[in-house]
Simulated assay, not measured.
Amino acid sequence: MNNEIKIRAAKAEDAKALLNIYEPYVRNTAVTFEYEVPSLQTFAERICNVLDKYPYLLAEKNGEVLGYAYADSFHERAAYKWAAETSVYIKMNKRRSGIGKILYNELENILKMQGILNLNACIACLSKKDEHISDDSLIFHKKRGYKYVGKFHKCGYKFNKWYDMVWMEKHIGSHTSNQPEIKKFSEIKIDIG
C-alpha cells in the first residue's frame, strides 16, 4: 500500500470532499470571513472558475483528501495579471503535518511556470488570540518566505468581533520592463496526477 501524499488538480467532482474541509473553517473560525457554508453547487462552480486560469490543487493519501490550495486573481484589472492571491485549507485533524507546505510548493512551482510573479496572502488576525483565530497562517506564510506588507484594522466582522486583515507577499519571478504574458493553468504541462 502506498502511503505517500499525492497532489493533483481538483475537479468539480471533488467539491464535496473539499467543502467538508472548508465547512469547519466557516462555522468555527475567522480564518475565512464567510458566514454561511456555500452549497455544494456553488463550491463546485468556484473550483471550475479558478481552474479556468489558475491551479486548484488537492492533497490525498490512500484516497482521503487531506487539504487543498489554490490561487486566484489578486485583482481583475490587466495590470495585476502577474499577481495572484493564494489560499490553503487543511483538514482540521491534519494541520501542522506538512501538508500545507507540500501543497504550496507545488502551487508555487505551477504559478512560476505560468509566469506569475507576485503571490499575495490575505490573512485574518486579531491583536490577541481568541478561540476563532490563531497565528498559524501568519507563521506558515512567513516560513514560506512571505513578507508582511500591511494591515487593515477592524475590517472583518464575525462572531461579534472585529478582525484585522494582514497582507503578505512573496515574489517568485523577475520583474522586467517587457514582461511576458502569463499562461493559463490548462496550458502548463505538469505531472501531478
Rank of each mutant, 00 (worst) to 15 (best):
N3L: 14
E4P: 06
I5A: 04
I7L: 08
I7G: 06
K11H: 12
K11I: 04
K11L: 07
A12V: 07
D14H: 08
A15G: 04
K16H: 10
L18M: 15
L18S: 05
L19W: 10
N20V: 00
I21S: 04
P24I: 00
V26I: 08
R27L: 12
R27H: 11
T29S: 11
F33V: 00
E34N: 07
Y35C: 09
V37H: 01
V37L: 01
S39G: 12
L40Q: 07
L40H: 03
Q41S: 11
Q41V: 12
Q41W: 05
T42M: 15
T42E: 15
F43R: 12
R46A: 13
I47G: 03
C48W: 08
C48A: 15
N49A: 15
N49W: 12
K53G: 09
P55H: 05
A59T: 01
A59C: 07
K61A: 00
N62L: 14
G63N: 14
Y68E: 03
D72W: 11
D72F: 11
S73H: 15
S73G: 14
F74G: 09
A79C: 11
Y80M: 06
K81S: 08
W82K: 05
A84W: 04
A84F: 00
T86N: 05
V88M: 09
K94E: 15
R95M: 11
R95T: 08
R96Q: 14
R96F: 09
S97F: 11
S97I: 10
G98C: 09
G98H: 09
K101D: 05
K101L: 03
I102Y: 06
L103N: 03
Y104A: 00
K112A: 04
K112H: 02
K112G: 02
K112N: 06
Q114D: 02
Q114N: 00
G115I: 00
I116R: 02
N120M: 13
S127E: 14
K128D: 04
K129W: 06
D130K: 02
H132F: 13
D136F: 05
I139V: 11
H141K: 00
K143V: 08
R144Q: 15
R144V: 04
Y146S: 01
Y146K: 09
G150N: 12
F152D: 02
C155S: 14
C155P: 03
K158R: 12
N160L: 05
K161I: 08
W162S: 06
Y163P: 05
Y163A: 08
W167P: 05
E169N: 09
K170T: 10
K170C: 03
H171I: 14
H171G: 07
I172R: 06
S174N: 14
H175M: 14
T176S: 13
T176H: 03
T176M: 03
T176W: 03
S177K: 12
S177I: 14
Q179H: 10
E181W: 07
K184L: 04
K184E: 11
F185E: 05
F185Y: 15
K189G: 07
K189A: 12
K189M: 11
I190D: 14
D191F: 06
G193F: 14
